[in-house]
C-alpha cells in the first residue's frame, strides 16, 4: 500500500468518528423505542458549547463534559415531551433540530471563525507499529479510540447482558417487558438521555478533534441527518451502523479525491449532492421491496446471506408511546 493511500484511509477513520459516535448514540435511543430526530441541530449546539468551554477553561475535558451535557439535555426535552407530556416526538425533535442550530449560531457568534489546536495524536505503543493496520487505525486522537471501545461496549451491552435484553425489549414489546417488571418509561428516559449524551460527544469530536474550530455554517451541517439514515441502514445493529459510518466517510473521501484529480472534470458543487444521493439510495436498498428484487440477480447461495445482511427491521415499538395502565 502506498503511503498516500494509508494516509487517506487514516483520515477516513478519523472523519467517520463523529458519525460512529452519533450513530451509536442514536442506536441506543431508538433501540429503546424513541427517535431523537434533533441530531442535525444538537450536534452543532454540542460542538459549539464543547469548543467554547474548552477555549474558556483551557481544559478539553470540561469541553467534552459540557458537550455531553448539552446533548443529554436536548434528548431529555424529547423524552419529557414524548413520555410525560404525550406530544409527538417527531414534532419536538424537528423543532429542536431548527432551534438548536439557530441557538448554536446565535450563542457562538463571537467565536465564529475561531480555530484551536486539535487534540494530540496518541500512538498506541506496539499496535501503531503494525504496518498498514497500525498506521490506519492506531495513530489517532484519543476520541477515535474511545469510539472503538464504544462499538464493542454497545454491542456487548445490547446482545450479551441482561440489561441489554431489557433495553431491546422496551423497544420491541414494551407491554411484555412491563409485565415482567421492567420499568419501561424510566428506562426509555435513561436511554434517550444516554444516547443524547453520545450525540453531544459526537458534536464535540468535530469541534475539538476532527475539524477543530467553530464556523458558520458549521462543518457538520447535514451530518445529523446522515447519522439518522446510517442507523436505519445499519438495521439498529452497532456493527452495521459503524460499517455504514465508515463506508460513508470513505465515499466522501473518494469524492474529494475525484475532485482533486486533474483528469476528471466534475464541478465541485455537484459532488456536494453525492452524500444525499447516497443516502436515498441506501434507504431504498434497505427497504425490503428493493432488496427482494435485487437479490434475485445474485447466485443462490449468496442470496440468503445478502438478504439477511441487508434486512433492516426497526424496533417494533419505535415511535409508539407506552402507557403502563
Amino acid at each position: 500500500m502506498t503511503p498516500e493511500l494509508i494516509n487517506i484511509l487514516n483520515s477516513v477513520v478519523a472523519n467517520a468518528t463523529p458519525l460512529v459516535i452519533a450513530g451509536l448514540g442514536e442506536t441506543i435511543t431508538e433501540r429503546a423505542g424513541i427517535t431523537n430526530l434533533s441530531l442535525d441541530g444538537s450536534l452543532a449546539l454540542a460542538a459549539m458549547f464543547g469548543f467554547v468551554a474548552t477555549l474558556v477553561t483551557g481544559n478539553p475535558l470540561a469541553g467534552l463534559l459540557i458537550a455531553m451535557l448539552v446533548g443529554a439535555l436536548v434528548a431529555l426535552i424529547i423524552a419529557v415531551g414524548d413520555i410525560t407530556l404525550r406530544q409527538d416526538q417527531v414534532a419536538i425533535g424537528f423543532v429542536l433540530t431548527l432551534l438548536c442550530a439557530d441557538l448554536a449560531q446565535f450563542l457562538g457568534q463571537d467565536y465564529t471563525g475561531s480555530r484551536s489546536t486539535p487534540m494530540p495524536v496518541v500512538k498506541i505503543p506496539g499496535l501503531s507499529d503494525v504496518p498498514v493496520v497500525g498506521q490506519i487505525f492506531f495513530s489517532h486522537q484519543a476520541i477515535v479510540y474511545f469510539s472503538y471501545f464504544l462499538i464493542f461496549a454497545v454491542w456487548f451491552w445490547l446482545f450479551h447482558t441482561r440489561g441489554g435484553l431489557a433495553h431491546r425489549a422496551i423497544g420491541e414489546r414494551p407491554a411484555a417487558a412491563f409485565a415482567r417488571g421492567t420499568p419501561v418509561n424510566r428506562l426509555r428516559y435513561l436511554y434517550t438521555v444516554l444516547g443524547g449524551a453520545l450525540v453531544g460527544l459526537a458534536g464535540a469530536s468535530y469541534s475539538m478533534a476532527i475539524k477543530p474550530g467553530w464556523s458558520n455554517p458549521p462543518v457538520m451541517r447535514g451530518d445529523g441527518w446522515i447519522a439518522l439514515a446510517i442507523v436505519i441502514f445499519g438495521g439498529w445493529h452497532p456493527f452495521r451502523v459503524v460499517l455504514g459510518a465508515y463506508l460513508f466517510a470513505a465515499l466522501r473521501a473518494l469524492a474529494s479525491a475525484i475532485q482533486r484529480s486533474p483528469d476528471i472534470q466534475i464541478p465541485l458543487v455537484l459532488l456536494n449532492g453525492l452524500p444525499w444521493i447516497l443516502m436515498i439510495t441506501t434507504l431504498v436498498l434497505v427497504s425490503s421491496g428493493a432488496i427482494e428484487r435485487l437479490t434475485r440477480i445474485l447466485p443462490r447461495p449468496v442470496q440468503r446471506w445478502t438478504r439477511s445482511f441487508l434486512r433492516s427491521d426497526p424496533p417494533a415499538a419505535l415511535g409508539t408511546r407506552f402507557e403502563p395502565d
Partner: peptide, 30 residues
C-alpha cells in the same frame, strides 16, 4: 408543544381518560 402536553395532563385530572393513544410515524416505511 410542551405546554399543550401539560394542559392535557391537567385537564384529564378532572375529566375522564385521555384520548386514545396516538401513534407517531416510525422513520421507516415498508
Amino acid at each position: 408543544l410542551l405546554a399543550n402536553g401539560l394542559r392535557q395532563r391537567f385537564m384529564e385530572r378532572d375529566s375522564r381518560r385521555p384520548e386514545a393513544e396516538t401513534r407517531d410515524y416510525p422513520l421507516i416505511t415498508r
